[in-house]
Amino acid sequence: MKVIFLKDVKGKGKKGEIKNVADGYANNFLFKQGLAIEATPANLKALE
């Protein structure tokens, strides 16, 4: 799953980066902790 990092995550990505991560990692950790959002077309456009 492609995500946009909202904060730096050690060993995974930095704020503003768009990366592929495992679905479970994104859903169970990144999204719940507010560290990333899904890289949907709307979210990508808002990032610009």
Rank of each mutant, 00 (worst) to 15 (best):
T40V: 04
V3P: 00
N28C: 12
V21D: 02
L35I: 07
F5A: 00
I4E: 00
G34Q: 07
E38S: 08
L44P: 02
K19N: 04
V9A: 03
N43P: 02
T40E: 03
L44N: 04
Y25D: 05
K7F: 13
V9Q: 01
K32I: 12
G16E: 01
L6K: 02
G16L: 05
A46L: 14
D23Q: 15
N27M: 15
I37S: 03
K32S: 11
L35P: 01
A26M: 05
K12W: 15
G34H: 09
N27Q: 14
A26P: 03
M1I: 15
E38F: 05
K32F: 08
K12G: 13
N43W: 04
G24K: 12
L30N: 00
A42K: 10
N20V: 15
K10C: 13
E17N: 05
N28G: 12
L47I: 12
Q33S: 09
K2H: 09
L35D: 02
V21N: 02
A42H: 10
K12T: 11
P41L: 11
D23S: 15
G24H: 14
K45D: 07
N43M: 09
N27Y: 15
V21L: 05
G34M: 08
F29G: 04
K12C: 15
D23I: 15
V9T: 03
P41I: 11
Y25P: 06
M1L: 13
I37W: 06
A36K: 00
G24F: 13
N28W: 10
N20F: 15
I37V: 12
V21A: 03
F29E: 07
V21W: 02
G16M: 06
D23T: 15
N27L: 15
K12S: 13
K19H: 11
N27F: 15
G13Q: 01
K12D: 08
K45R: 12
A26F: 14
L35Y: 12
L35F: 11
F31I: 13
A46W: 14
N43T: 08
K45H: 10
K32N: 08
N27D: 07
A39H: 05
K45Q: 10
P41Q: 11
L6T: 06
L44C: 09
N28L: 11
A46N: 10
D23V: 15
N28F: 11
G16N: 07
D8K: 07
K19E: 04
A42Y: 10
Q33A: 12
K19Y: 08
I18W: 02
G34W: 07
E17Q: 11
N43V: 10
K15R: 12
K19C: 08
K15A: 12
I18D: 00
G13E: 04
K19W: 08
I18H: 03
M1A: 05
A26K: 03
V21E: 02
F31V: 07
G11T: 05
L44Y: 03
I37N: 01
L47M: 11
I18Q: 05
G11H: 07
A46I: 13
A39W: 10
G34V: 04
Q33V: 09
A42T: 10
G13N: 02
D8M: 05
V21M: 07
D8A: 07
N27A: 13
V3G: 00
D8L: 05
P41G: 07
D8S: 11
A42N: 10
A36H: 00
G11R: 05
T40M: 03
K12R: 13
N28R: 13
A42G: 10
F31Q: 02
A46G: 10
K7D: 06
A39T: 01
A42F: 08
F5Y: 07
V21R: 01
L35M: 08
P41V: 12
G34R: 07
N43F: 08
E38T: 06
N43L: 10
L47D: 03
N43K: 06
M1K: 10
G13I: 04
L6R: 02
K2S: 11
F5K: 01
A39V: 06
L44V: 10
E17T: 06
A26L: 06
Q33R: 14
E48F: 14
V9N: 01
V3N: 00
D23K: 15
K15Y: 06
K10E: 13
L47K: 06
K19R: 10
G11I: 01
K15L: 07
K2I: 13
D8G: 06
A26C: 06
L47F: 14
N28V: 08
K15F: 06
I18F: 04
K45S: 11
N28M: 12
K7Y: 12
E48W: 12
G11P: 03
N43I: 09
Q33G: 07
K7C: 14
I4V: 10
F29Y: 14
K12E: 13
V21T: 03
Y25R: 05
A36T: 00
K15W: 05
A22H: 13
K10T: 10
T40G: 04
N27V: 15
N28Q: 11
K14I: 09
D8P: 04
N27T: 14
Q33T: 10
G24T: 14
G13V: 06
F31A: 02
V9I: 08
N28D: 13
A39N: 00
F5Q: 01
Q33D: 07
I18E: 03
L44A: 07
A39S: 04
K12Y: 15
T40K: 04
K45G: 09
L6G: 00
I4C: 07
G11A: 04
A36Q: 01
T40S: 09
A46S: 10
G16P: 01
K19P: 00
N28H: 11
K32R: 12
E17C: 07
L47A: 09
K32P: 15
A26T: 04
E17D: 11
A22G: 11
G24E: 14
A46H: 11
I4G: 01
K45T: 10
G34Y: 08
P41Y: 11
V21H: 02
F29R: 07
L44F: 06
I4Q: 02
A26H: 03
A36V: 07
E48N: 13
E38Q: 09
D8Y: 09
K7P: 00
G11M: 06
G16T: 00
A46C: 13
Y25V: 08
A36G: 04
N43R: 07
K45V: 09
M1C: 10
G13W: 13
K7W: 10
T40D: 05
D23W: 15
L30Y: 04
T40L: 05
G24N: 14
F29S: 06
K14G: 06
V3F: 01
A46T: 10
L47N: 07
I18G: 01
M1P: 04
K45L: 14
L6V: 08
G11E: 05
F31L: 12
G16C: 08
L30W: 05
L35T: 03
L44S: 04
A42W: 06
E48A: 14
F29K: 06
G13Y: 13
L47G: 05
A36R: 00
L6S: 02
K7I: 11
